[in-house]
């Protein structure tokens, strides 16, 4: 039984992440009065580019060639070590808060290096912007999750999910503040509005897309898939750490099926939220972003001061 659970835990993020991207795109299309592509289109895209030949720049070094494998692997490890449908894996030694944040930084580090490697003007500026945003997000991201860690008396993500779900409703108001801070960090880390536009290739605005401009074929597929994984990981963290109700506290089959259903509904709601946000606000100017990120940090500081 636990072996099956482990496999599910390991596979669920890479398996569902393209779907979450597809759902967001579909909702955005509806907002724009388009029918939009099927929600399964991202799977077909991945399959298609995975089977294409590749063009690699003559200036690229091994970093450019190696980075997609590493970035993808890191997201798979992260996906396996966060609470998805059950909180029983509290013995998982990788699901420490700081390990998670620094593993995310690991992926970003190599993505930014790969962006600089080919020596195009786009890649370099993409890396610079990405690292600026990532560096300033780290405080807000860490402290918003730390607020939860203090109310759950542990930095283990599974334990947090388990304890927060049993807290009385009254004690949750600071957690909502922390959730606000987390949402800002989520949008910044997953390259969404108002930080980045996932649908543009306009050189003045792009961050994430600028770094991966030179990729093609299987490496592009890996990078795109990793980005989708990261998006789903952040959604799952938001859903299961801040609103852990419905998560299974046992290995009972019915509990787990129920928890899976609840998880999907929560992810759907968060996808809807992101899509609505992207359809209703404009992208910020780059130098306005730090204000937003510092807001995230200060919100989580307030949350922490209310909790401890």
């Amino acid at each position: 039984m636990s072996l099956i659970l482990w496999t599910m835990q390991l596979v669920i993020v890479p398996a569902l992440s393209p779907l979450s991207i597809g759902i967001v795109r579909k909702i955005k299309a509806k907002f724009q009065n388009r029918i939009g592509a099927s929600i399964f289109q991202p799977y077909r895209d991945l399959w298609k580019i995975l089977h294409k030949d590749e063009v690699i720049s003559e200036d690229a070094s091994w970093i450019f060639k190696f980075a997609p494998y590493l970035i993808f692997s890191v997201t798979v490890i992260l996906g396996a070590s966060i609470p998805i449908f059950t909180a029983v894996f509290s013995e998982n030694l990788l699901s420490d808060l700081l390990v998670m944040i620094y593993l995310i930084a690991f992926g970003t580090f190599f993505l930014a290096l790969a962006g600089m490697d080919v020596g195009s003007a786009f890649g370099g500026f993409g890396s610079s912007r990405e690292m600026t945003v990532a560096a300033l997000t780290e405080g807000g991201l860490m402290f918003s999750l730390l607020a939860l860690a203090f109310s759950g008396h542990s930095t283990n993500l599974f334990v947090i999910a388990g304890t927060v779900s049993s807290l009385p409703l009254l004690s949750l108001s600071p957690i909502f503040l922390a959730f606000g801070a987390f949402i800002i960090a989520l949008l910044a880390e997953t390259a969404r509005f108002p930080f980045d536009n996932p649908a543009t290739h306009l050189e003045l605005t792009m961050i994430h897309e600028a770094m991966i401009l030179e990729y093609s074929g299987k490496r592009l597929a890996l990078i795109e898939w990793a980005a989708a994984n990261k998006f789903l990981i952040f959604l799952a963290l938001g859903a299961n750490l801040f609103f852990p109700w419905g998560i299974s506290l046992s290995t009972n089959l019915i509990d787990i099926l129920f928890a899976l259903a609840v998880f999907l509904i929560k992810i759907l709601i968060l996808c809807l939220f992101v899509a609505v946000l992207e359809s209703s606000i404009a992208k910020f100017r780059f130098f306005r972003l730090p204000d937003l990120l510092f807001t995230s940090f200060i919100l989580s500081m307030i949350a922490i001061s209310l909790i401890i």
Binding site: T108, F109, L113, S127, M131, A135, E138
Partner: peptide, 20 residues
């Protein structure tokens, strides 16, 4: 913040010295 900025600084250092 130091951790994040240090990572940025070494992307800069490694990228500017060894890449492109």
């Amino acid at each position: 913040f130091t951790g994040g900025l240090a990572a940025m600084c070494f992307v800069k250092a490694f990228g500017a010295v060894f890449l492109a």
